[in-house]
Design a binder for these strands. Sequence first.
RNA 1: GGAGAGGUGGCUGAGUGGUUGAAAGUACCGGUUUGCUAAACCGGCGUGCGGGAAACCGCACCGAGGGUUCGAAUCCCUCCCUCUCCGCCA
Length: 439
Amino acid sequence: MISVFCGFLCFLWLFFYFCGYYSGTEKMIDIRILREHPELVKANCKRRGCPVDVDRLLADDAACLALQRETEDLRAQRNQLSRECREKPEAREQVRDIKEKLAEKESELNQLKGRLNRNLAWLPNLLADDVPEGDGDQDNVPLRESGEKPVFDFAPATHEVIGERLGIIDTARGARVAQSGFYYWSGRGAQLASALFFWAQQELVKRGFKLFMTPCLAKEATLFGTGYLPFFQDQTYRLEGEDLSLIGTSEQTLVGYHAGETLPAQSLPLRYAAFSPCFRTEAGSYGKETRGIFRVHQFHKVEQIIFCRPADSPSFHAQCQENEEYLMQALGLHYQVVDICVGDLGAPGYKKYDIEAWFAGYGGYREVASNTNLTDFQTRRLAIRCQDQDGGRCFPHTISATAVTDRVVCAILEHYQHADGSVSVPEVLRPLTGFDRIE
RNA sequence: GGAGAGGUGGCUGAGUGGUUGAAAGUACCGGUUUGCUAAACCGGCGUGCGGGAAACCGCACCGAGGGUUCGAAUCCCUCCCUCUCCGCCA
């Protein structure tokens, strides 16, 4: 009974959420969703196991509104009296009184607002109804497979073994020069990786993406706006004494590209792509996947980003998925698509799919790409709006999806290995590598 | 890194203490005139928050943050950014 009721509320909410933007009158922000449908926000938090105290947010918000009315009232009085001051100098005394009261209220308001905003920053995005329940990656739901699992008449090696044997992955020197968790691609391995990244960029351009090379450092406001702060603060490398961090993905700089701007609705969708290094401290993941270069402090990624009208985000989410899978298929890799469950879906995400490639040497599927519909979570934080010709304004939705990463190179190594230890180059990359085999 | 100039609405650009949210132009939208186009003329035209059924009202915003003042786009301080010149440099 209760769940039916909740379902109905969700339906109602979604209806307004997706349709409201086109009315031109709906200008909800997080706090308004909270005010108007607190039960939805609470249910969402509960589903995510998120500790935000919604009732306290509501109480703080109500207090803020009351205080805001008071201060605005005082300011209105002050402004009125100031205007009279030229004719009636005695009004100056009155204004001084008001100013004192105003200063008190203002500082009270600022304090309260600060607390409210700090707590609001931790509120996760809403979830799509069809996100599978679950606590962690073990509960993700495989949806489909593609390609053939390769068959070997020998025991296939893992990418770290292949990489070392062929002298194309060097983790020892990576650790010596930088730190454990860094590595070199070298020789034909570096050529293969470069070819893959270049190829993927060209494919995205063919599919309508505009290619960028972006800053690899970004300021706090950018990381906050894209939802990486405060949620993934401990994953971020921050420069000492500067308001700059190493980017964890070019998503941060591509979405942040339009911070504070109003985009004409007719310019949407915007399809952006970039290749960049990605830096992650991987704090808390010590001991997990330490072998090879699967989990490292710096990797490289070709990324796809889409800004679109709110109603269109599900279809562009699907389109990004298709792009990802096209690349995997063109490379001849075997993979499965996984529907990410609640417990494995980051706070900014509304709905997410991963691609897990088959790693023959490892003997299992491992994540190589992910594709997230972030709805308006990022655009609200970054104040990116869209405006249609009749003046209606809304927050565009963003899709953030991987194209390829170094992990795909690893999958290639394991998929295309031979008994003699050599590795074939996927057909589509041969024109770029100039060789068809690494031995 | 050194020296100078500057940051005002989609754009250009006035404004140096008081109904200035901000002249003017341009762009844009609506209308009139016109054989079409162009031109001319008239009107409209920022955003956010709060209040209101609505009309509408209030507050805030002239790079950001503080300060002076009854009152700040305008005065003072700090920071950021842009441009020009010099130096250095992939």
